[in-house]
Write a protein that binds this DNA or RNA. Structure first.
Lengths: 202, 202
DNA sequence: GTCTATATGATGATAGAC
DNA sequence: GTCTATCATCATATAGAC
């Protein structure tokens, strides 16, 4: 909705959303001041409060957009891989700025976000979608004969989601992509064992 | 060292550390003000700055203690379980306040902590220890014939560590223990498949 | 729609009496 | 060792001119 209002993306409201999105990723919610967003967007104080009710209102718009982006990215990763095992590996592969954390997921660690129904909702919804999408991929894998039929795909989907989120934390802690890659390799080797008898996992 | 200075735990420095530890868990570092710590400890402003250089100095002392506690807890979980699979399940079992996040791990999400060498160090050290400890448990499992000999225990240890950290994030997001339990079940079923041929995993 | 004041409150730390 | 001022700074938001 927000993105379809105007043909061009250069108006102030859009620039504010983009700036907020960048800063939410770089610093989180609490550490991002309205002044910093305004400065990055090249807008004045009053301008921001004309377009949005307050800091939370602007952050909410930014979160919604981040949620859309995240879903698209997940979908692309799945689409670019052939087998189920490759799809899960693709999902768990690091992105460009892994040590900075997950754009959307990191926000739930912020006290103000976690305590706000409004700011929490887009995150909950997006991760529910991703979890369900992973489960679909796993179910497809079972149907294709790439995974054993007795796999509990629901809990496995949660594990895979948790690994990616945890891998972000470890990478941030280590200031390195390496733990992220290791976490992916660790689960990949187990997943290979979940191929039906005789069929090699990858 | 800090804990062995006095026979009783009632002096102001100790109470300040305890209060900081509690507040770091409940609110994180940035959201915890010196005033809040002082109030909980029943100490005045000047008293805190007599015992510690500043907020970071007090937080550092609290982090060190949290690191010790965490190691002890991990050790106890391993000690209370018999088989390798049970040990990993015990490690991944939820604790009392899972939706609040990992006492120590959640701090790395705080911008100020992540940006401070001083405040980051005890976290890095503690998680390096835990990761190595998990790897030892897995290696023991291989030696005992409970895990296949071709398992890459190093990357698997990282995956298991990542699952716990990620499970905290999902539980916090959902405000429920359920995702935490699901994440544990998901990996447990895969681990069962990593038993040597013929030997049941659990 | 955008700008420049300005208000209000909290934060992290210091000064200096006791 | 502990206390009560006090300070400089920043964060969020509002008022009102243009």
């Amino acid at each position: 909705m927000a993105r379809s209002n105007t043909g061009k993306g250069g108006d102030t409201g859009e620039r504010l959303i983009d700036s907020m999105r960048e800063l939410l990723w770089e610093r989180g919610y609490t550490a991002t001041s309205p002044a910093a967003v305004q400065q990055r967007a090249g807008a004045g104080q009053g301008s921001m409060y004309h377009h949005f009710r307050n800091k939370a209102g602007l952050a909410l718009a930014a979160e919604r957009r981040m949620g859309e982006d995240l879903r698209e990215e997940v979908e692309q990763r799945f689409a670019a891989a052939a087998t189920t095992h490759q799809r899960i590996e693709a999902y768990l592969a690091p992105d460009a700025h892994v040590t900075r954390g997950c754009r959307l997921g990191r926000l739930i660690q912020d006290e103000e976000v976690a305590g706000s129904e409004e700011l929490r909702e887009p995150i909950v919804e997006t991760y529910a979608w991703i979890q369900e999408r992973i489960r679909q991929v796993l179910d497809e894998g079972v149907a294709r004969g790439e995974l054993r039929a007795d796999v509990d795909t629901e809990s496995l989907a949660v594990s895979i989601l948790a690994i990616r989120q945890g891998a972000y934390a470890l990478a941030r802690l280590a200031r390195s992509e390496e733990p992220f890659r290791q976490a992916g390799r660790g689960i990949a080797q187990l997943l290979a064992l979940a191929a039906p008898e005789g069929a090699p996992g990858s």
